[in-house]
Design a protein around this nucleic acid. Structure first.
Length: 478
DNA sequence: CGGTTTTGACCGGCGC
DNA sequence: GCGCCGGTCAAAACCG
């Protein structure tokens, strides 16, 4: 008996040591992960500085080629005199369009402008207004006040610690909050804005939900109008208080397509499986948000969008300005339904996400500052890793479309590389991340990461049709 | 028993 | 003001 007790004691001790070791390893891992992210961000910032200088020079050079000297001087002064204030920047026709209240008007006013000179000036202004350049360094913390003002209601309801405790976190009110930050992080205001912008991933999948490396808890399910398939609502449960939510719904026209829409910033380190995708979708969302920042009503400025339009017949990345929330859509289906594509063209601006040098040119109107800001902000908007172990046909499902009527070699190259990356890589998350990174020009993502593990999502599948506009029960036929 | 899912109720925005 | 609709809440049920 005594011997057994001693043995037990020894094992307990050993167990304790192992626990400590595990905790230590876990801590080291988290620290290392954060370190890697910060290093990547630093590198990206350095690159941004460099790119910004280059593109500013290019802009001015281009500008000089197309204007007489008087205009050059005038515009140059405009460029130099533009302050960070969004209020002063948003004048002229942008302001006019901001006054229009309906989304229809926004869409209508978002027609491409032919005046090249005007575009250049506006690009420059946009650059300044959206990135609030400091010594040529774009940074993300601009316009916080207006962001929180725009979304103060939402902030009060969803983001404040008080409402957090009585809101969705109230389910846990019996449980001591482990990870809840004692005070709101500085990024809360942009986070409020981030909660408005969304990243939507369309992918073919037989599985009811893509496995993206994060843990989700379902908090609702509803029938959405115009779609016989229910929409499921999930929130991230990887940390208490993480505001990230996602919606999962099957496409009405093609039910093999799963539409996953992410919204919000993770407030915790992401697992490797979600890391790459998060950074890339964040980049996409930040691009979108960069536009919305300068807009008074929180929607993307239609004129700014208009300048981003290229005559693409179809593409894999779209930005919707007419949707209730500005949304970046990453279409990873191999062939979109023609009907759907038509609708997409009617309701969405399709924005080719090319590489930086093309993205920053006046042809599409996005300034480099915007691009750079979006390229790698470090904010993790979404966990849109789309690893789907159930995907039967990963390579074909992920083939990217880039039918360009407008020649843009860099995008074609990107898409080609992305497609190759996906078809060559059995690991869908890595391939998808690489694909999106390639297309939006995010070079920071490791395209060779074939070792990403799929952390299983705990959320259950969404169920199938039922025609009441209320929560429904599981449909066995899914 | 703790975490997740289900699902009716509720809320706010929006159009009429 | 009213109804519709999307989104969320929260109690109960469920599950491992």
């Amino acid at each position: 008996m005594v011997r057994l007790q001693v043995e037990l004691q020894n094992m307990n001790d050993e167990n304790q040591k192992l626990k400590e070791m595990l905790a230590q390893v876990s801590n080291n891992y988290s620290a290392l992960q954060m370190h890697v992210v910060s290093i990547m961000q630093q590198q990206q910032q350095l690159q941004q500085q460099q790119n910004h200088r280059t593109d500013t020079a290019q802009l001015i050079q281009h500008h000089q080629m197309n204007n007489n000297k008087d205009q050059e001087v005038k515009h140059e002064r405009q460029f130099l005199d533009l302050g960070p204030s969004t209020a002063t920047v948003e004048t002229t026709d942008d302001q006019v369009s901001n006054n229009s209240s309906s989304s229809e008007e926004r869409t209508r006013s978002a027609t491409p402008q032919n005046n090249n000179n005007n575009n250049i000036v506006q690009d420059v202004k946009y650059n300044n207004s959206t990135t609030t350049l400091k010594d040529g360094i774009p940074f993300d913390n601009q316009d916080h006040s207006s962001a929180s003002y725009r979304d103060c209601k939402r902030v009060n309801r969803d983001e404040s610690p008080e409402s957090e405790s009585q809101g969705w976190a109230s389910n846990n009110n019996k449980v001591p909050k482990l990870n809840h930050p004692p005070s709101k992080p500085i990024e809360q205001s942009p986070d409020a804005t981030m909660r408005k912008a969304r990243v939507s991933v369309r992918a073919r999948s037989e599985a009811p939900m893509i496995t993206d490396g994060c843990q989700w808890r379902k908090y609702g399910q509803k029938m959405a109008k115009g779609n016989p398939c229910p929409r499921a609502y999930y929130r991230c449960t990887m940390a208490v208080g993480c505001p990230v939510r996602k919606q999962v719904q099957r496409c009405a026209e093609d039910r093999t397509i799963l539409i996953t829409t992410y919204e919000g910033n993770h407030i915790h380190p992401l697992p490797p499986a979600a890391m790459a995708m998060a950074s890339t979708t964040t980049a996409a969302a930040n691009m979108l948000l960069s536009g919305s920042m300068s807009s008074a009503d929180g929607l993307m400025n239609p004129n700014l969008l208009a300048r981003a339009i290229l005559p693409c017949s179809s593409n894999m990345a779209t930005i919707s300005a007419s949707a209730p929330f500005p949304t970046v859509t990453l279409d990873l289906t191999n062939n979109s339904n023609p009907l759907q594509m038509l609708r997409s063209q009617q309701t969405q601006f399709q924005v080719p996400l090319g590489q930086s040098q093309n993205f920053a040119t006046p042809h599409n109107g996005f300034g480099q500052g915007l691009y750079n800001q979006s390229k790698f902000s470090g904010l993790q908007l979404s966990s849109a890793g789309a690893q789907d172990n159930h995907m039967q046909n990963v390579s074909s499902a992920a083939q990217l479309q880039a039918h360009q009527t407008h020649p843009q070699p860099s995008l074609a190259d990107s898409v080609s590389a992305a497609t190759a990356a996906i078809t060559a890589d059995p690991n869908f998350t890595a391939a998808l991340a690489a694909a999106i990174s390639s297309i939006i020009g995010n070079n920071g993502t490791n395209q060779n990461n074939n070792n990403i593990n799929a952390a299983g999502s705990t959320a259950n599948p969404i169920s199938n049709p039922n025609n009441n506009n209320k929560m429904i029960s599981n449909f066995p036929g899914n």
